[in-house]
């Protein structure tokens, strides 16, 4: 794998930022970085994803910084973050100007919900793939289920749940680690 070009990084994150409706952003990043280009391994991506969610800041901007840093250091992180935010920055300001007119058209509002639903489908696909990968071991499957039930179903606060599950999950992953390390 050669050095990733900055303009390529910019163009990927710019497109992701521009079309990232309804929360499917991390799934799209996953698709571009892991699935299509193989710039990061699944595990690198997912652990970065966990870090991004634990740290303060929007998950997707943290994830972009993490990936940019991983691929090209400081300049990579700056480029990924700026590229991600440029289009949404212009879009919110533009939308503010036309908001009253759009929200009065019933089908336009419904279409936006539909776009959001499709975006969630993207997320669902990534969750299933990642879930399958992560639950190849029993401890992985348990950690996944515990996190999902705690945060998703019971709606407990994210940080305490992760702080409880993480040490157990890491400890369970420990004895196997030397084999491939």
């Amino acid at each position: 794998m050669g050095r990733v070009r900055l303009w390529e990084l910019f163009s990927i994150f710019f497109r992701i930022g521009m079309f990232s409706f309804g929360g499917g952003l991390s799934a799209w990043i996953y698709r571009e970085i892991v699935e299509l280009r193989g710039w990061l391994t699944e595990q690198e991506f997912l652990s970065g994803m966990a870090l991004s969610q634990i740290l303060p800041g929007a998950n997707v901007s943290n994830l972009s910084v993490y990936i940019g840093q991983r691929l090209r250091g400081v300049s990579g992180a700056v480029v990924a973050l700026l590229a991600l935010l440029t289009a949404p920055f212009l879009a919110v300001i533009g939308l503010l100007a036309v908001y009253d007119r759009i929200s009065a058209i019933p089908w336009a509002a419904a279409a936006m919900d539909g776009v959001a639903a499709a975006a969630i489908g993207l997320l669902l696909r990534m969750a299933i793939r990642a879930g399958r990968q992560a639950s190849t071991t029993l401890s992985g499957a348990v950690a996944l289920a515990a996190t999902f039930i705690g945060v998703g179903v019971l709606r407990w606060p994210l940080i305490p749940v992760v702080l409880c599950v993480a040490p157990l999950s890491v400890a369970a992953a420990w004895p196997r680690a030397p084999k491939n390390a």
């Binding site: 595990q43 652990s47 992560a134 401890s139 992985g140 499957a141 950690a143 996190t147 993480a166």
Partner: peptide
């Protein structure tokens, strides 16, 4: 390895 399943659980 320990964090990856947690990331997946958070996505779900």
């Amino acid at each position: 390895r320990g964090l990856a399943p947690i990331g997946a659980g958070l996505i779900l």
